[in-house]
């Protein structure tokens, strides 16, 4: 707890330094944005939401898609933490759309993963959650992202709770088709930049095999 307070102190000093040297608004709000995590950890949720809404307005005005996507992801996480599943999903979808606009694979994977978590917590959302977790895992595998393990674990949990007979997107084409229904998500286009179709399918096969193994632990 004391360390989160200390983190807020460090961030306040960065903000002060940027003010003092006349840094641009984007740099100052970029530093302030980092306070949302400690605020959430300290249970100061209203303050965290006000901060993120302010960040959202400024990043939107500057058309800074990377920062906007990260802000929306943080907001979605906050709504999820408050138990507001509907808002978490809508904001998570918005985060994903902006992450694709920003075109940073690691951020896109974070948004897919987050959306999977929020859908999983909603009624009848497991099969869509699974598709988002698979998309996150596929991207993370192709860019050697260290968070692949988290995605595999989530896919494993989805497998364990999936109703029997529910179709699985076990080919990249099936996964792309499912993701094409999500506004702004262009998974097929992104993956084509990250590897050949054969490499992508091999990655998906690997993910499915490992997730099946993990699913046994959750059943």
């Amino acid at each position: 707890m004391r360390e989160w307070e200390e983190a807020l102190g460090f961030i306040a000093r960065i903000v002060e330094s940027r003010h003092d040297r006349g840094a641009p608004e984007l740099e100052i709000i970029g530093a302030r944005f980092n306070a949302h995590g400690p605020l959430i950890e300290l249970g100061r949720l209203d303050e965290a939401e006000r901060l993120l809404q302010e960040c959202r307005e400024i990043f939107e005005a500057h058309r800074s898609w990377v920062d906007l996507a990260r802000t929306l992801s943080a907001l979605a996480h906050l709504y999820h933490a408050c138990g507001d599943a509907a808002n978490a999903i809508v904001t998570g979808q918005d985060a994903l759309r902006h992450a694709y606009l920003a075109a940073i694979p690691q951020d896109i994977a974070i948004s897919h993963h987050g959306l999977g978590v929020y859908l999983c917590a909603s009624d009848n959302g497991v099969s869509t959650a699974l598709a988002h977790h698979l998309a996150a895992a596929l991207i993370r595998d192709l860019v050697s992202d260290g968070r692949l393990r988290n995605s595999l674990r989530s896919v494993g949990i989805d497998f364990a709770s999936l109703p029997s007979g529910c179709p699985l997107p076990d080919t990249t084409d099936a996964l792309y088709a499912q993701m094409s229904e999500v506004r702004g998500a262009r998974l097929d286009e992104l993956v084509s930049y990250l590897g050949t179709p054969e490499k992508a399918q091999a990655a998906l096969n690997r993910i499915l095999t490992e997730a099946y193994e993990l699913a046994r632990c959750f059943q």
């Binding site: 983190a7 330094s17 980092n34």
Partner: peptide, 13 residues
């Protein structure tokens, strides 16, 4: 100097 200070604070935070 500001760059050194801000980077250290960022890492600490």
């Amino acid at each position: 100097a500001w760059n050194v200070r801000e980077n250290l604070l960022d890492t600490a935070g």
